[in-house]
């Protein structure tokens, strides 16, 4: 890997370990990961079940903290942040797309897209227009008043993607984002990711499906909490 200057690095892991206490034994879900994700890169993180991909995504998403090592977002270390600052960081600089969409059922499409904005200290003037644009962009412009139970799985995932984009994040983290969708709908969602990559967004896609992993520009393979190999996918 070529060393990158700080402005080009979206996220950086330095010797990150995440250890869980299982009774008297310690289990290292991540065991010394050092890696840089460059700005605008499209990564897939692959590995078998228990390889540590979800733990890695949780740490990358700042909803979990490393036991050892350091995680830096845009050059600044996360370990110095308190719980509130971490929340702010998640809301402002990270976008999540989950396997089971995780929309809030009481809110309609537009409100769901706006959830990350709601937790900002001030309501930005652009928020509503941007939310409408994003809804339009993911093909739900005509359904902004609908609630999640009235939408198909694919539509819900599109809302989730729009929600992940509302604050124009540095990193988009997708956890098995197509896992609950049929292949045709999954393909549509992956096309959205392709588009986002083309626009220069940094995307980290966790998957266990090889075919999906290969769509990314780069693939990181995890085995037992370590990086087994990093592959550049020429086909993408």
């Amino acid at each position: 890997m070529t060393p990158q200057t700080q402005t080009e690095v979206a996220a950086e892991l330095v010797n990150v370990r995440r250890v869980y206490q299982m009774g008297s034994t310690e289990v290292a879900a991540l065991d010394g990961i050092t890696h840089q994700f460059g700005r605008g890169e499209y990564w897939s993180i692959m590995g078998s079940s228990g390889s540590g991909k979800s733990t890695l995504l949780n740490i990358l998403g700042c909803i979990d903290r490393p036991t050892e090592g350091e995680y830096l977002v845009g050059g600044s270390p996360v370990s110095t942040l308190d719980d509130d600052q971490l929340s702010e960081l998640r809301g402002a600089r990270l976008g999540f797309v989950f396997q089971s969409y995780n929309l809030i059922p009481q809110l309609d499409v537009l409100e769901n897209i706006l959830v990350p904005v709601m937790y900002r200290d001030e309501w930005p003037a652009w928020a509503l227009d941007r939310a409408k644009d994003l809804a339009e962009r993911v093909g739900l412009g005509g359904r902004t008043g609908h609630r999640p139970p009235e939408l198909s799985g694919g539509q819900q995932q599109r809302v989730a993607i729009a929600r992940a984009l509302i604050n124009d994040p540095d990193l988009i983290l997708a956890d098995e984002a197509t896992g609950n969708l049929d292949s045709k709908t999954a393909e549509e969602i992956l096309e959205v990711f392709d588009e986002l990559h083309a626009e220069g967004k940094t995307i980290l896609l966790v998957t266990h499906e090889r075919s999906i992993g290969l769509r990314a520009e780069l693939t990181m393979k995890l085995v037992d909490g370590r990086i087994d190999e990093v592959v550049e996918n020429r086909s993408s």
Binding site: G61, I63, D83, D84, S87, E88, R90, G91, A92, F96, F98, N102, I104, V115, P116, Y119, R120, R163
Partner: peptide
């Protein structure tokens, strides 16, 4: 979900 999307404890 809310916490992941930026909600503080408060």
């Amino acid at each position: 979900i809310r916490r992941a999307l930026g909600a503080k404890r408060k």
